[in-house]
Write a protein that binds this DNA or RNA. Structure first.
Lengths: 335, 335
DNA sequence: TTGTACGCGTTATCAG
DNA sequence: CTGATAACGCGTACAA
C-alpha cells in the first residue's frame, strides 16, 4: 500500500478529486457525509499531501535552505537552533546542509537549493570559497539571501556578523590589563575575514597600549585540533615563549591547553589564555576558559527574521542590510 | 528575472520543450547548433531543473530524511557526518531535522518527510516518544526506515544500536578492577532504553564481582548540564560519598567534574570518573576523561548503507535487521 | 532532427 | 453541493 493521492481517494469513493480536495481542506460547502467519508478514508490510508505537487503549483515551498561549513561545531549548531526556532514559529521548514568548507560542495548545495525552489537561503561561507558566482546568481533568480558570520563583500545579500575587530580588541586589551607583555596570537586561516579582523583588532589594542607584537608571536592555524595543538607547541617552545595567547577560537584554545599541559606550564600563572566563541565546555575546563562570547542563538534568530521578512514581502531591488553583533568578554580563570 | 523553466527557454528559442529537454540531457541526436544554443541560454539564465517536477514525475527524490533529537550533541553530529558521507557518495541528499525530544515535533517532521516523498528515513527517537504510530505508518507506505541509537522494539524497521549493556558492564568492571568499592551510577532518563541498558550492564558487572550497589548511589538525571551538576553535587555530599561514578554520558560526566571541583575532590584520587560517548574534548579535560567510545561515525555510515540498500532494492515485506556495535573502553586518567 | 501529447498530484476556476 | 478542467515543470513515447 504505497502512498496514495487524492485521485486514489476519489476513485475509491466514486467522487471527483475536486470534492476530495475540498473535503480535506474544510472548504466551501461539502456535504457533511461526503466530508466525513473522505476524511476517514484519508486517515485510514495515511494520506499526506504531496509537497512536490503543491510546490509546483504554488511556487512556494515554505522552506528555507541553510548552509553551514560544518554542524559539528557548537557555534553553528547554536545558530541553527536560533534560526529554526524563528522559522518554525512562522511555519517554515529548514533544510540544513554542510559544505564541509569544500567549495565544490557549496556550489552543488546551492544548485540543489535552487532546484528545490526554496523560498530563501541562509549561508555561512566555506573557508575556501573565493568565487561567488553561485551566490550572486541568487539575486538574478530573486531568491533572498542572508549571510551570517562568514560573509564576503562581493556577494549581494544581507549580512549578519560579529564585530570581530572589536572582539579581537577586547581580547588584547584584557590581556594587557592583566599585566601581560609578551602577547601572542594564533590566528585562523587568512582567507577568512573573521581571522583577519580578530587579528586587526588584537593588533590595534596592542598599538593603543604601545605593546609590541613580535613577528614570531603571530602564527596561524586551521581549526583542526591537531593543527592548533602543534602550532601552540611550536609557539610555547620558542626560546622566549609568550606569556599570553589569544586564540582565534575556543577550539584552538583547547589545543593550546593541551600543549601547555604537555610542557608543564601552569595557566594562568605561566601563560594567560583567551579564546573566542564561548563553548559550553569552557566553564568546565581546568582552568575555566576566559573567552569572547558571540550571541550565536540570537544571530540565528535575526538571520531568520531578516530572511523571512524578505521572503514574505519581496522587494525587487532590495538594499542589503548589515547587522553587527558586539561580542562580549567572558571572564573566567584562564587569564 | 525569476526562475526559468524549459518552457521559457523553448519559447525564447522558438523550439519545443522536448528539444530543450533533450539538449540539456545530451540525449538522442540533437542538432549540435540547437544544442549549443539551448545550453548557452540555459547557462545565461541560470536554469536549474525544478526538482518538484522531477519528483512528481519519477516518484523518486534521491533524498533521505534524517531525524535526530538534537544537533548540538557531538554524538549525533558525528553520526550525521557518517551518514552523509555515504549518502552523498551514492548521489543522495540528506534532509536533517531536529525533534528536540518533543513528541509533537517528531510527528510533524515525519509527516513532512512523507509529504516531501523522501526515499527513506533514518531516525533516532526522541526521549519522550511513547506512541509509535507515526513511525509504523511508514511500513504501510513502503518507506524504508532505519532507527539508530535510540530505537524501540515496537517500531517496525532496521535498528543500528550500541550494545549499551556491554558498555555499562565494561564501565563497572573497569572501576572495580581499579580497586573502587563504593560505586555509583548517574543514569539517564528511565524512558530511554539506553539508560536502562547501561544501568543493567553496570549492575551485572557489580553482581559478577560481588560488589554491592547502594540504593542511594543510584540516581538519575536529564542530559542538561545543570541537572547533572546538581545531581552529582547531591551525590558527593552524602555522608558517605561514593569513590567512583559511572556517568551515563560524557556530558553528564562534565557535570560531575564541575561538582567534584567545587567540593575540592581530586580526580582520580578521591573519586574515579568514567563517562560514555568519547566527546572530543575528553582528552583535553583535567584529568583526561576515561570513557566508553561509541563508533558514531561508523554507525552513521552503516545506517546509510542499510537504508540505501532498502531503497535501491525494495523488498515487499523486508525483515528488519539489527546491527549491534560494541562500545570500547577508552582509558585515560580519570580512573 | 524535432514536435505533440500525456501524466505525475494538487488547487482554483468555472460550470453545472 | 459537486464535477470537469487547466495549469504548474518535466521526461518520454510516439509521430512526423
Amino acid at each position: 500500500m504505497p502512498q496514495v493521492s487524492i485521485k486514489d481517494i476519489a476513485r475509491m469513493l466514486n467522487i471527483s478529486v475536486a470534492t476530495v480536495s475540498r473535503a480535506l481542506h474544510d472548504r466551501y460547502d461539502v456535504k457533511p457525509e461526503t466530508k466525513r467519508k473522505v476524511i476517514e478514508l484519508a486517515e485510514k490510508l495515511n494520506y499526506r499531501p504531496n509537497s512536490h505537487a503543491i510546490g509546483l503549483l504554488t511556487k512556494r515551498t515554505h522552506t528555507i535552505g541553510l548552509v553551514v561549513p560544518e554542524i559539528d561545531n557548537q557555534f553553528f549548531s547554536e545558530i541553527i537552533n536560533g534560526l529554526e526556532s524563528v522559522a518554525y514559529q512562522q511555519g517554515y521548514n529548514v533544510m540544513i546542509f554542510q559544505s564541509q568548507n569544500i567549495y565544490e560542495r557549496e556550489v552543488k548545495i546551492i544548485d540543489q537549493l535552487i532546484s528545490a525552489r526554496v523560498d530563501g537561503i541562509a549561508i555561512s561561507l566555506g573557508s575556501t570559497t573565493q568565487d561567488f558566482r553561485h551566490l550572486n546568481m541568487l539575486k538574478e533568480l530573486d531568491i533572498p539571501l542572508v549571510m551570517f558570520d562568514r560573509v564576503h563583500d562581493s556577494v549581494f545579500g544581507h549580512k549578519i556578523i560579529n564585530d570581530n575587530f572589536d572582539g579581537g580588541y577586547k581580547a588584547g586589551e584584557f590581556l594587557i590589563k592583566s599585566g601581560r607583555q609578551r602577547l601572542a596570537h594564533i590566528a585562523g586561516p587568512d582567507t577568512l575575514k573573521l581571522s583577519r579582523l580578530r587579528l586587526q583588532g588584537f593588533k590595534a589594542a596592542l598599538r593603543d597600549a604601545q605593546v609590541e607584537l613580535k613577528p614570531e608571536y603571530l602564527v596561524d592555524t586551521t581549526f583542526r585540533l591537531e593543527d592548533s595543538y602543534q602550532t601552540a607547541l611550536d609557539l610555547l617552545r620558542l626560546p622566549e615563549p609568550p606569556d599570553a595567547i589569544f586564540a582565534v577560537s575556543d577550539y584552538v584554545a583547547l589545543g593550546v591547553l593541551k600543549a601547555a599541559r604537555e610542557l608543564n606550564l601552569q595557566i594562568p600563572r605561566d601563560l594567560a589564555l583567551i579564546g573566542f566563541s564561548n563553548l559550553s565546555v569552557g566553564p568546565l575546563l581546568e582552568p575555566p576558559l576566559t573567552t569572547i562570547s558571540q550571541h550565536s542563538f540570537e544571530m540565528g534568530q535575526v538571520t531568520a527574521r531578516i530572511l523571512l521578512e524578505n521572503i514574505e514581502s519581496p522587494v525587487k531591488d532590495y538594499k542589503p542590510q548589515t547587522r553587527i553583533f558586539k561580542p562580549e568578554l567572558v571572564v573566567r580563570n584562564s587569564v
